[in-house]
Amino acid sequence: MSAVPAEAPAAPTPKLSASNLQVVFGHGRQEVRAVRGISFNVRPEESFGLVGESGSGKSTVLRAICGLAPISGGSVSMDGTAIEGRRSKTFARRVQMVFQDPYGSLHPRHTVDRVLSEPLAIHRFADREERVVAALKDVGLDARFRFRLPHQLSGGQRQRIAIARALIVEPDVLLLDEPTSALDASIQAEVLNLLQRLRAEKKLTYLLVSHDLAVIDHMCDRLLVMQGGEAVEELDRAGLKDHAVASDYTRRLLTASEGYVR
């Protein structure tokens, strides 16, 4: 705990923390070590970013937290309590995830209404009608969209529905797996604004994964750069702005995010 910045004298219990997290898929010769010892702490109501390119294991970290990938070593804890084994319904109410591909994360044969009411049915909410309508309004969609099927929606609208689905059970942690990388630049701005507004309104904690440093910088207070399943370095916004980075890899990512220079 040496790297704790001075601004937090009595550091609160982190909302979410990973310590020496490892994820291994398969065994024997086909063993793939996707995450090789990652540690980070996300404070309550903070937005924390994981940056890396494909194969860096950044999405796997998210999947390990919510139980879609095995935790093979180290630990993950929430509010100081370790998360392990099969995730309970209570866990589902507290942690939700938004996936990268808005075309793959909505059931092609379920209407928006069904997508939004199902989590309410699972968690036995009473006032479902009102909640579905409110959830649509929250993500800036008209009530007209309520009975549409996913193929009648644009990519940006689908991602809004996915966000509404995640937030409808009132979680306090949202795991965002490249929520805008499948969208046009112009739609990305809308979705990022929406996520910013919702975080402020609902006092959410975000763990955001992206390959785009600019997006992370816009959304997050602190970030961890990952490469090949390992942590490269942890940075805060000021460091990123001043290019005060320690590793060559981060520097290359920074250059890349500035666009093509002839």
Partner: peptide
């Protein structure tokens, strides 16, 4: 293995559901 099944699982849906 699709994301929408993963999403349902994350929502706490039972295997039967």
């Amino acid at each position: 293995r699709s994301d929408y099944i993963a999403a349902a699982r994350l929502q706490g849906a039972s295997t039967l559901r």
